[in-house]
Simulated scan of single mutants.
Amino acid sequence: MSDMTDVPAVAADAQSGRNMRMLADIPLRLSVEVGSTSLKLSELLDLAEGSVVELDRQANELLDILVNGTLIAKGEVVTVNGRFGIRIVDVVATDARLAGLERRA
Rank of each mutant, 00 (worst) to 15 (best):
M1F: 03
S2K: 11
S2I: 11
S2P: 06
S2E: 12
D3E: 10
D3M: 04
D3Q: 07
D6I: 02
V7I: 15
A9W: 02
A11R: 10
D13H: 08
D13N: 10
Q15S: 13
G17T: 06
G17S: 09
N19Y: 05
N19I: 12
M20T: 09
R21S: 06
M22V: 11
I26L: 11
P27W: 04
P27S: 10
L28C: 05
S31E: 15
V32Q: 08
V32R: 05
E33L: 10
E33F: 05
E33N: 12
T37K: 07
S38V: 13
S38E: 14
L39N: 05
L39P: 02
L39Y: 05
L39Q: 05
L41S: 07
E43R: 05
L44C: 03
L45Y: 08
L45P: 00
L45E: 09
L45V: 12
D46T: 05
L47P: 02
L47M: 08
A48S: 14
A48I: 09
A48T: 14
V52C: 08
V52W: 06
V52S: 08
E54S: 13
E54F: 10
D56C: 07
L62K: 08
D64W: 08
D64P: 04
I65S: 01
V67I: 14
V67C: 03
N68K: 04
G69Q: 03
T70S: 12
L71A: 09
L71K: 12
I72S: 01
E76F: 08
V77I: 15
V77Q: 14
T79C: 13
T79S: 15
N81F: 12
G82Y: 01
G82S: 02
G85R: 06
I86T: 13
I86S: 06
I86V: 15
I88E: 05
D90Q: 15
D90A: 14
V91Q: 06
V92Y: 00
V92K: 00
V92H: 00
A93Y: 06
D95T: 13
A96Q: 14
A96G: 06
R97P: 02
R97D: 00
A99Q: 09
A99K: 09
A99C: 03
A99D: 10
G100A: 00
L101W: 13
E102P: 02
R103E: 09
